[in-house]
Design a binder for these strands. Sequence first.
DNA 1: GTTCTTGCAAAATATTTGCAAGACG
DNA 2: CGTCTTGCAAATATTTTGCAAGAAC
Lengths: 133, 133
Amino acid sequence: MTAKQLLQQHKLKRTSCREGMLELFLASKEALSENELREQLSGSYDRTTFYRSFITLLDAGIIHKIVVDNILTKYALTTPMTREHQHVHFFCTHCETTKCIQTDVEITIQLPEGFHQDSMDILIKGSCNHCKQ
Amino acid sequence: MTAKQLLQQHKLKRTSCREGMLELFLASKEALSENELREQLSGSYDRTTFYRSFITLLDAGIIHKIVVDNILTKYALTTPMTREHQHVHFFCTHCETTKCIQTDVEITIQLPEGFHQDSMDILIKGSCNHCKQ
DNA sequence: GTTCTTGCAAAATATTTGCAAGACG
DNA sequence: CGTCTTGCAAATATTTTGCAAGAAC
């Protein structure tokens, strides 16, 4: 799957900003922040454009957003694996690497009477393989 | 446990802002936002004071912070139940009510080789008992 | 050529910091 | 009275909006 195909598949205009962002997402094993994208695209685009592109790609479901406390916002491709209801993210508290974790176990939490669950976000914080102590 | 006791126990000065905040937390079954606290304390304190009081109470471990995406930040008392490594919050996408959910089930997620878990935050989104459709 | 996207400027929002005045113990 | 806390002003950061020029199809 290429950036071009992803955009066409979702009937989105193929602009260089969107295509550049998607290429970076496709090449990365980890979630990326706005700043990381900006650096790698050599600051070619305005911040406003990034924000609007994020919204477009989020709405299309091509990427999803990962927010860690209020510290950090990252984005990652939505793959079949991450499209699931149940979605686990790992955040390294040392290097801030953030990634989607595959899980086969079905997690169920008993809610109080009258509460209804739509989705569940799970964030695990710790040290990644490069930062292990 | 009273607000006064909580502050003394943690060797914190007993100021009216801290005490007022803690009284609201003690009386509430749900997490509260800065705005909710401000309204209920009739805007008696500066925003800066709230932020600094949050930091003080967070550092002391008296309260904890719940961030929902980037939309909303709430705070709730840290009770023995919520002091656990594993922490479940419920967020109602209609009325934005946010609360800590008790769970006895121990959730374990297999991390990739070399990754180490310190903590896990679980956020369940859905409708609360008042907003159920 | 019509519609959607971009860049710029500016506004809105959330949060942090410095400093002098004031409250707590 | 010494130390910690508050309020104000201002800085910083993030995100949103309006509008005219430009690109995509």
